[in-house]
Design a protein around this nucleic acid. Structure first.
Length: 291
DNA sequence: AAAGAGTACAACCGCCACCCT
DNA sequence: CAGGGTGGCGGTTGTACTCTT
């Protein structure tokens, strides 16, 4: 079968399985840092490992890759997972794109071992995110019950019970992109920030009100899903400057503030904390400088 | 202290889609 | 167009650790 190690052109004997030793980690890490990945098929041989390429790839992606967060999920991360799972279902890779430093495997494990049970305990069907014994579908909100503060602020409910992207949507940490933690700045515009900008470009209303109708909910779901689907073919470093400009425009910076940032970017130094850039981390700027 | 149960997480498996020849 | 190679994904299993009795 193509999915197992057989399709990584390797002899089947001497293929080690199971947990990775620190020595193996060291070999793989130093090889990739030195030479990059190239073809995973050739990595084990070149790195002196008795593993299949697929196993090496998995170890790198899920464990060794720089920028990965370790440790337990924060309340905010849990809220985001809950929300995105309601939108995407078990599309862990999609969900992971919105959680910088977390891998799809990690999120999947966390869901299966913890969040799922939590929901069931609360009487919520983890598949549908609706109360298990609920009969009236109209009463179900798109935001999970026990609405997380962050999400509430980002997607606040209007008087009709509809969903509105509020001003705080931009400011919420939902917009801390992949570039935070210093990973994958190439994928920055895959995140909800771009989706929001897209929405604002395509609609005249600055708040883009989603009333609580099936049609509008479907519209929003579809929109986000479509945007996410496009995520693999997104930006490159050259877009970063435009991105900064966009953010500054949104933040309504004046000309002098913008010039100040340009100076900092040019001089590659300065105290970035003093800038009103809640969405941008120093790591993002670091990635920008590094380019 | 030991054994069994439960939990968390790492790793594997099988399938699919894409690319290249 | 067909077929092989490869990377990526989601589901599942295995294992180490923790908790409970």
């Amino acid at each position: 079968m193509a999915g197992d190690c057989r399709h990584f052109k390797q002899k089947q004997h001497n293929i080690k399985k199971g947990l990775w030793s620190p020595e193996e980690d060291e070999k793989l890490f130093s090889y990739i840092v030195k030479f990059g990945v190239g073809s995973w098929t050739s990595v084990p041989h070149r790195a002196g490992l008795e593993r299949c390429g697929k196993s090496c790839r998995l170890r790198w992606v899920n464990y060794l890759r720089p920028g990965l967060k370790r440790g337990s999920f924060s309340k905010q991360e849990q809220d985001i997972i809950l929300y995105l799972h309601q939108l995407f279902g078990n599309r862990w890779a999609q969900i992971a794109t919105q959680l910088p430093g977390r891998t799809d495997n990690e999120i999947k494990n966390f869901w299966n071992s913890c969040l799922k049970k939590k929901l069931i305990k609360q009487g919520i069907d983890p598949n549908t995110h609706k109360p298990i014994f609920a009969s009236n579908e109209c009463n179900q909100n798109i935001i999970p019950s026990g609405k997380p503060v962050e999400l509430q602020e980002a997607f606040h409910m209007n008087n009709n019970g509809g969903l509105t992207l509020g001003d705080n949507f931009m400011k919420s940490n939902l917009f801390v992109g992949e570039s935070d933690m210093g990973i994958d700045p190439m994928g920055f515009d895959c995140n909800l920030f771009t989706q929001y900008k897209q929405i604002n470009r395509e609609t005249s209303s600055p708040s883009f009100d989603f009333s609580n109708t099936l049609a509008s909910r479907t519209m929003m779901d579809t929109f986000i899903k479509e945007e996410s689907r496009e995520s693999s073919s997104c930006t490159n470093y050259s877009n970063m400057n435009n991105l900064f400009a966009e953010i500054c425009k949104y933040e309504e910076w004046n000309a002098s503030e913008w010039q100040e940032l340009q100076k900092v970017l040019a001089s590659n130094e300065g105290d970035l904390d003093s800038y009103p850039m809640g969405l941008l981390s120093e790591n993002l700027l670091g990635a920008f400088f590094a380019n």
